[in-house]
Design a binder for these strands. Structure first.
Lengths: 203, 203
DNA sequence: AGAAAATTTGCTGATCACGCAAAATCCTTC
DNA sequence: GAAGGATTTTGCGTGATCAGCAAATTTTCT
């Protein structure tokens, strides 16, 4: 079923994503026009907009995929697993390959890309948008798992939204850790703290 | 010190905000151009952009003010107050006047405005942007209060970001509650749960 | 009143995003 | 393997947003 058509579509999508990211990293976000990205990917500018609705979508597409992957990962966790274990693993998983627990440093280009997402205001906004756009689905998956009604109960959406936020905080902390630290444990800490409660440290 | 200049500036800002909101509610967001808002406020289109950088900023300006107000409110809480009490009150305060604990229903126009913020994707994105743009400041205020170093400690930013998210969830829940419920208790519940931990309901 | 400072405004240019229809490409069926 | 159908790409045109710049207007200060 993987016709040439689908493969080509995936390929241009991929080409546009990497072109956008590469150019933005090289020249700075403001010196990249849609036209440039399209040219780099060997495609007409009009086609760019068939794939991505805004100039920034292509750059944040990887992040969009990560977010969606978390939702799917949660749905794929074994049924017996305790809820917070499942949720933690699901949230961590898409980040694991970037910067695992092992000492190996993440690819610098990849890190620069993530850093740009959190430093360029326009990309930060786009990232937030996709993260919280998906959180209806995340809430639904959570509701399903804990047996709640997502429309009436506050719990699923509260957990979905705060977990999403906690991951953001974890990534941000990871980005600014001076002796670099591995990301995955940071994320686990965030989620464990969230599950257990956030009392003030000194009280 | 309240020269005519400053008063006029406040007035046009206010006029632009209300004009933008009114038009968006009346016609739908997509049928409002910057030009229309400026005309409604009796000002040139170019001036609109001196006040607001995007078409959506004016509409979400009230929300922006709420977010900022929370940060200031936290800084203004009495020093002896327990941390989570202070934080809860600070987050709730800007919303309190809209829909307090008392039975009085909120002004329908006001409610429609808030609902539009969470239903129109573009406005939702803008709201998220301002909420999380301010959360560096919120984290700083939290760090100050609990005596932490916002650059090194994860706690302040984790709390800031999750609290912001929890408020979002609370407001969203309030908006879809079928027999309407007062907002403030919902927000308090969200924040109490966040502070105490979010174990799965049935485990 | 008159100079200095700040704000408003019109103009302009760069860019973006999308509708539409023609051209190009891929897939299916005979 | 060729014709016909379906999908994608592309070019063109349109409407709109946003920011820089300099002139005009308004407020403030002396």
């Amino acid at each position: 079923m993987t016709g040439l058509r689908e493969r080509k579509k995936q390929a241009t999508r991929e080409a546009l994503m990497t072109a956008a990211l590469r150019l933005a990293l090289e020249r700075g976000l403001d010196n990249v026009r849609v036209e440039d990205i399209a040219a780099e990917a060997g495609v007409s500018p009009r086609t760019y907009n068939n794939y991505f609705a805004s100039k920034y979508e292509a750059i944040t597409a990887r992040h969009t995929d990560r977010v969606r992957a978390s939702v799917e990962a949660l749905r794929a966790r074994p049924a017996g697993e305790p809820f917070w274990d499942a949720l933690t693993e699901a949230m961590v998983q898409p980040w694991a390959r970037h910067a695992g627990t092992t000492g190996q440093a993440p690819a610098p280009e990849l890190l620069a890309g993530i850093r740009m997402l959190s430093e360029e205001p326009a990309l930060r906004a786009e990232s937030l948008k996709v993260a919280f756009a998906a959180d209806g689905e995340l809430a639904a998956a959570i509701a399903e798992r804990v047996g709640a009604d997502p429309a009436r109960d506050l719990y699923p959406s509260l957990v979905a939204v705060t977990v999403t936020a906690a991951v953001q905080a974890g990534v941000a902390h990871w980005l600014r850790a001076d002796p670099p630290v591995p990301l995955v444990p940071v994320l686990r800490d965030c989620l464990r703290a969230l599950a257990a409660g956030l009392p003030a440290p000194t009280e």
